[in-house]
Nucleic acid binder design. Structure first.
Lengths: 126, 126
DNA sequence: CCTTGCCTTGACGCCGATGTGAAGGCATAC
DNA sequence: GTATGCCTTCACATCGGCGTCAAGGCAAGG
């Protein structure tokens, strides 16, 4: 499978696949041409990468998951390193959630306060 | 008040204040030197900017709030434009919260699944 | 006069995952 | 031969809120 085909099958671009390779996440063989040649297992790997990216992981965080898959495991998140990353990310997400919840509360407060100010002003200029 | 003093009083840096000015958020007079000269009201403005930034607003979003303050209002979020931005941002934050909540759920699922796999493997290799 | 310490403008660096060319090689079909 | 459509590497652009030099002006005190 050439890079274009894998890109299409994975719903991404050749540029992106080369970027993953540059960061050691994907390792194609090379044809006599110099063309990258991927086997079917790489599709699974790329899907894993994309899913984790969508969940907010960085490429560095994703490495253990890929290694775990390559080690023959059915899923990438059963290995100790993956679990460590999962825990770290979970803590991060909890932090963001707390922050966002605070922000949301402040926003609501400010909105309702703004509305009140308006009502007061309307009573003053009837 | 010179830029260094305002920066210190606002808990930020001269570079940052110049950046705000570049984006039309702060408008100092100029001394004969060419030095920026700020009056005390600007401290309030800078505080508003910093608070909103901390709540995730971009500099463009903040403009209406500053304008509202300059228009003589006691708080920057009572003007219609500010309220519009507040609403938009609230919707955004709700979106992020939903997303993060999903991610969090997936993370927890993957973690518990990983733990289960482990237990199974331990039973197999006692 | 020289140092110190403020100020000025201008411009590049960062971070991360990609887009977007440029310039060229290879393969297949006409 | 040439048109098409893959592929290759190299390298700059994006977004935002600054940090961080660089090179220089101005003020005040020794």
């Amino acid at each position: 499978m050439l890079i274009g085909e894998l890109a299409e099958r994975a719903g991404t671009s050749p540029r992106t696949l080369r970027y993953y390779e540059e960061h050691g996440l994907v390792r194609p063989r090379r044809d006599v041409n110099g063309y990258r040649q991927y086997d079917d297992a790489e599709l699974r790997v790329v899907h894993e990468i994309r899913t984790l990216l969508a969940d907010g992981f960085g490429l560095d965080d994703i490495k253990p998951f890929v290694a775990c898959l390559r080690a023959g495991n059915e899923s990438g998140h059963v290995c100790p390193d993956s679990v460590a990353v999962l825990r770290r990310r979970l803590a991060e997400v909890d932090g963001y959630l707390a922050q966002l919840t605070d922000v949301r509360q402040r926003l609501r407060d400010q909105l309702s306060q703004a509305v009140q100010e308006r009502e007061i002003r309307c009573q003053m200029n009837p």
